[in-house]
Each structure stands twice: as structure tokens, then as C-alpha cells.
Amino acid sequence: MANIDTKEQQSSTKTHIELRMRANPEYLCVARTVVRQVVRILGLKEDKCELVALAVEEALTNIIRHSYGGPCDKPIIMKLSKIDPYDENKPALEIAIRDFGRQVDPKSIKAGQLDELGLGGRGVHIIRSVMDEIQFSRADDCGMQLRMLKYIT
């Protein structure tokens, strides 16, 4: 299993699920189902669970489309953790996603200006809208890492 640097806080982060999947859109429904269930178990409110599943879906879709240039057999690794406490004694859900594809400058990954009739550019916008913190970084050897936090309030 590849190492995901999640900048864990000392002994307060517990990983609950690790999922390794092929970069194939056929498995997006599996990832969504896992995320919905796990974030519910970790204490996220019902109405937020679906939005977090949507944000994860957008991250995975971006990896398949942009990092790997399309569906392929290469892996995507996702870790779902709970940081307790994270801020002001409140816990947070952490989702770390690692790919092994093309590396880009993290600063270049921006939510595009929303164009009403544009066909793309909404994925990062959705992720930023749903999650409380997000951070893209280059992985040590190849690929990118995405760390997303959602506060559990």
C-alpha cells in the first residue's frame, strides 16, 4: 500500500477505511457507496453525507480524466479518517486520495470560472463548495495527493 502523507495530527487521526480501486468509471458507484456509508458512521449529518460523496466522486473523476488521461488499470487509493479533535474540540472527517498519474503544479488546480454553458470545469468548484479544507500536493515519487476535510459539527 502506498504511503499517503495526510499530515496526521499526533495520535488523533484514525483511519477507518482504505479503498484501492482501478481508475475506471465503472467503480465510481462502489466508491460513492463506501463514502456515503463510512461518513455516516463517522458522524456526519445525513444531508452532508451525499454532498461529501459528490465531492469524492468529482475528485475521482478528475483523476481518471486528467491525471491518467482516461480510464485505465492504474490505481487510486482513498483513505477515510476521523480526526478527533481537530478544531475547537470538534472532530473532522479527512479524506485523502492518492493517484500515480501525471504531476501538475498544485497551484494550477483551480476552480474554473463557472461558465453557464461550458462543458467542463465544475468538478473542482464542487469540491471547494462542499469541503471545508482542501489541499493538492505532489506525491513523492509520482502522481498527486488530495487531502480534503469536512468538519463534523
Binding site: R32, A53, L54, E57, E58, T61, L117, L119, G120, R122
Partner: peptide
């Protein structure tokens, strides 16, 4: 029951 930005883009198309 679920639609992501790919689905949205298809509708926009």
C-alpha cells in the same frame, strides 16, 4: 438519485 458534474455537462451539451 445522483448526478455529478459529468451528468450536468451532458445536460448542458
Amino acid at each position: 438519485e445522483f448526478m455529478d458534474s459529468s451528468g450536468v455537462a451532458t445536460l448542458v451539451g
